[in-house]
């Protein structure tokens, strides 16, 4: 039976309607991805540790910015939540070229109390959890054709940071942040940062018998640890230290001041996100606030000498049940969220 007559109601969208709706959808993304006003930040992403920001910037930005963000997971300080900070890698490069030695400024102030240990393979997630002193959480949902490939435990170590006011002041001046006064009482104060072991589970694409493993595919990783503890001197003003980090990252004095007042510095870990090529948004992970960062890694030369643009990557961070968790891997974050929501 012909049903041609039933197609006669069909119509194409009016061009002006299609254009208006498309622009509206675009504006949704613009509003999401634009650097948030302080008020929005308060709602969007409550707090992260200020000292963590400085460490991440000082140690991390000679590397690819968002890889530093991922590594920042290992630098957690009493994390309850995460907040994104737009940073301008070019500004950091300019500061470094101008003679600012980030590593040197920090290295002399950091003493290793317990040396970090790189990831050591373990037989199973449960064995790793036992070693890490946590209960293993695992996702019940994985990207199609992915399976658990490796389990490992890393020990980020314990550090003692001794504040040197002269060096912090030099950093402030180099960053043009001369409005920030380093309190004299800080000089010689120490912060002790004990980072708990991290259980890392890697999920890789399964390989059909007789076929080759995909090259260059690291797959997805689920990282989890107890929330780290940081000993701070009494009345230590993390917000001021955080402001200094924000200024180094490229915020104006007014922005940094407003931002620093909007978050709880003693419970929020700041995650640097490059202002170009990176996006961030607050997400919900089974009722917990999380931060989803997407970024485009820098192209790297292949073994044949060619350079191909790498795939988009995403990093999802959240806390739950006294643990800090992160999922990294390729894509725009959809699969990360699916995995995260199934983590038990």
């Amino acid at each position: 039976m012909s049903d041609d007559f039933l197609t006669r109601l069909r119509e194409e969208p009016r061009p002006e309607f299609a254009a208006r709706l498309e622009e509206h959808l675009h504006q949704i993304d613009v509003q999401r991805e634009a650097p948030r006003a302080p008020g929005a930040l308060r709602r969007l992403a409550p707090a992260l540790a200020g000292a963590g920001l400085v460490c991440a910037i000082a140690l991390g930005f000679t590397l690819e910015p968002v890889r530093a963000a991922a590594r920042g997971f290992l630098d957690l300080f009493r994390v309850k939540s995460f907040a994104a900070v737009p940073v301008d890698p070019a500004r950091l490069e300019r500061l470094a070229k101008g003679g600012l030695d980030f590593k040197g400024l920090l290295a002399e102030q950091v003493q290793v109390v317990v040396a970090p240990e790189g990831p050591q393979p373990v037989d199973s997630p449960e064995a790793g959890a036992l070693a890490a002193g946590i209960t293993a959480s695992q996702p019940s949902v994985l990207p199609r054709r992915y399976a658990l490939a490796e389990s490992a435990v890393a020990r980020p170590g314990t550090f003692r940071v001794t504040i040197d006011n002269a060096k912090l002041q030099a950093l402030a001046l180099a960053a043009g942040a001369d409005e920030i006064e380093i309190p004299p009482a800080w000089n010689g104060a120490t912060l002790e940062v004990a980072l708990p072991p991290v259980l890392a589970l890697r999920y890789a694409r399964t390989v059909e018998p007789g076929s080759e493993a995909p090259r260059g595919e690291a797959g997805f990783a689920l990282l989890q640890s107890a929330v780290p503890q940081v000993d701070l001197p009494e009345a230590f003003d993390l917000a001021t230290l955080g402001r200094l980090g924000l200024r180094v990252a490229g915020m104006s004095a007014a922005e940094a001041l407003a931002f620093s007042r909007s978050i709880d510095w003693r419970s929020t870990l700041l995650v640097p996100v490059p202002i170009r090529g990176g996006t961030y948004r607050e997400v919900d992970v089974s009722g917990h606030k999380g931060l989803l960062v997407t970024y485009q890694p820098q192209p790297r030369p292949a073994t044949d000498g060619t350079t191909r643009p790498p795939r988009q990557q995403a990093l999802l961070l959240w806390t739950a049940s006294g643990k800090a968790l992160a999922i990294t891997g390729p894509g725009d974050g959809v699969q990360h969220l699916e995995m995260a929501e199934s983590v038990r």
Partner: peptide, 16 residues
Amino acid sequence: MGGVRLSAWFAPAADR
């Protein structure tokens, strides 16, 4: 299980 390098897990990877 072979050796694991955590840093490699953050490297670019192809998926979809």
